[in-house]
Design a binder for these strands. Structure first.
Length: 486
RNA sequence: GGCGUCAUGGCCGAGUGGCUAGGCUGGGCUCUGCAAAAGCUCCCACAGCGGUUCGAAUCCGCUUGACGCCUCCA
């Protein structure tokens, strides 16, 4: 088996990946809060972890991939209404209608981007009982306190024996010194404390009974509870966006330690942000682009529509831990590269074999694995794929050769990397189109070829130009004319 | 203000103490009736200033700039 290295946010180092249980991987990724449509930035994170999931599967691991849906509203600030309630009021819907609507949107969009579904997709509201139980345990362990029907985690006390800041590399002392002057309405003992349970005011729509009265759970708790329920108190990989590192993931560690007295996660992984105009995409600031706008081209930041696969390819050209800036120019360049890759893949199926091989497939293949094994370096993998594109074209021109066994190996590897691991879909070219359309175009090609033989350039150019206007590109090659549909 | 990350050729975007990333664009060539498409090929960059080193874009320091987190956020 290949030796995989993963960058662990806990140590800030690349570490050799060794699962807790041989051959099995438990992976938890923080899912979305479903109060609005997912934007492209959200999609990037889930796509990154989809690639990671796919590669682990490709390596032969049995992976349990858990990704939650946050369907309980959380506070925007200390005494305001939560986001799901706000949205419910605005759209005149039940909170659970909001949740349902945007959960479906989330699933649809991720499916369009060819993301595999997780093994388990638990919801926060489906685990209220477990959350209450966890709070009771934390109180029993002396690390939480109740005030006025709300329960808070005692960060200062926790930090005396444990390290609050172990993940984000913050020092709690700094945090205390730099606390902004708050309004003073909070029930918390310290500003650093965070809510495990929050009392629900009369206007609060989502509410549950608890030992502390009617309320709702704190945001960080659901992930602690659901990850340990489905993956155990200690599991291999926990992922999420960089912006969740603090406070969310830091709090998860603290809660898990307070409940189970163990560090919950062996490898913490954080995907970086997708920016637009140099700034983070964000639901709250409005600096974002929706997937459906990518598909239709209906957004001021782009000049045309792009397919989901092109967007996926665009993102896979950057490393998941790097900031990636979205622009029309960048995705347009990606589209051209993507099309070239797909053209070569189509050509791959038509290659002829030779007695000998002039190209070392095994070496090339290992280079691809080396890239992925180095913390899932998809940009390097893609660079290698373009090396393969070149080889494919040269074989087609009889300037390189592969024997039958090597060609099989080559095909298999390319398909595995392109489709299984990176998760692209071949949306291009004529094989997808109906026989009838193919037949019609073949007739036109034959007519044009006759016109060309007759040197009737007016007619032959007219056929060519009118087809291109429809998005059908005729390609004159040595072995006759073929066509591609854009 | 605190903590952290990053600064690469026209654009996007990898990487390494000494040997070509890759994509897009642009130049050249092949193919073509002309084109287009496609293919081949060329274009050697690493913010600034110091330092370590035989050698640094890659390590260290400072400066400048950008971004992220510190408040819901993927």
């Amino acid at each position: 088996m290949q030796s995989l290295k993963i960058y662990n946010s806990l140590s800030n180092k690349k570490e050799v990946f060794k699962p807790i249980k041989d051959g099995f991987v438990g992976m938890y990724v923080c899912g979305p809060t479903v109060y609005s449509n997912v934007h492209l930035g959200n999609v990037r994170t889930f796509m990154s972890f989809d690639m990671i999931y796919r590669y682990l599967l490709h390596l032969g691991y049995k992976v349990r991939y858990v990704r939650n849906i946050t369907d309980a509203g959380h506070l925007t600030d200390d005494d305001a209404e939560d986001k799901i309630s706000t949205k419910a009021r605005l759209e005149k819907l039940e909170p659970m209608e909001i949740v349902q609507k945007y959960t479906i949107d989330f699933h649809n969009i991720l499916q369009k981007f060819n993301n595999l579904p997780p093994s388990i997709e638990p919801t926060a509201t489906g685990h209220i009982v477990e959350q209450i139980k966890a709070i009771e345990t934390i109180i029993e362990n002396g690390l939480a306190y109740e005030v006025n029907g709300s329960v808070y985690f005692d960060v200062i006390k926790y930090n005396k024996t444990e390290n609050y800041g172990i993940l984000s590399k913050r020092k709690i002392e700094d945090a205390i010194e730099n606390t902004r002057a708050l309004d003073g309405q909070s029930d918390k003992k310290n500003a650093q404390d965070f809510a495990l349970w929050k009392k629900a005011g009369p206007e609060h729509i989502q509410r549950w009974d608890s030992p502390w009265g009617v309320g709702f759970p704190g945001w960080h708790l659901e992930c602690t509870v659901m990850s340990s329920k489905y993956l155990g108190e200690e599991f291999d990989i926990h992922g999420g966006g960089m912006d969740l590192k603090f406070p969310h993931h830091e709090c998860e560690i603290a809660q898990a330690q307070a409940c189970n007295h163990v560090a919950p996660v062996k490898y913490w992984m954080h995907g970086n942000m997708l920016t637009m105009n140099g700034k983070k995409m964000s639901k709250s600031t409005g600096n974002n682009i929706l997937p459906k706008e990518i598909f239709t081209g209906d957004n001021p930041n782009i000049t045309k529509a792009y397919s989901a696969s092109v967007a996926r390819f665009f993102m896979m050209q950057a490393h998941y831990r790097s900031v990636l800036d979205f622009s029309n120019e960048a995705i347009m360049a990606a589209e051209k590269g993507f099309n070239r890759l797909m053209e070569a893949l189509n050509l791959l199926n038509k290659l002829e074999t030779s007695a000998n091989s002039s190209f070392d497939v095994s070496k090339w293949k290992q280079q691809c694995y080396d890239a992925l094994n180095d913390d899932f370096n998809t940009p390097i993998l893609i660079a290698n794929l373009f090396e393969a594109v070149k080889i494919i074209n040269l074989i087609h021109d009889h300037k390189e050769t592969l024997n039958e066994q090597d060609l099989d190996n080559f095909k298999q590897a390319i398909h595995a990397f392109v489709f299984d691991v990176i998760g692209l879909e071949n949306t291009s070219i004529s094989n997808d189109n109906s026989d009838k359309l193919n037949g019609v175009v073949e007739i036109l090609i034959a007519l044009r070829n006759q016109a060309r033989e007759d040197k009737d350039w007016n007619l032959s150019d007219k056929i060519r130009d009118e087809l291109i206007a429809l998005g059908i590109q005729l390609e004159d090659g040595k072995e006759g004319t073929t066509f591609a549909i854009n």
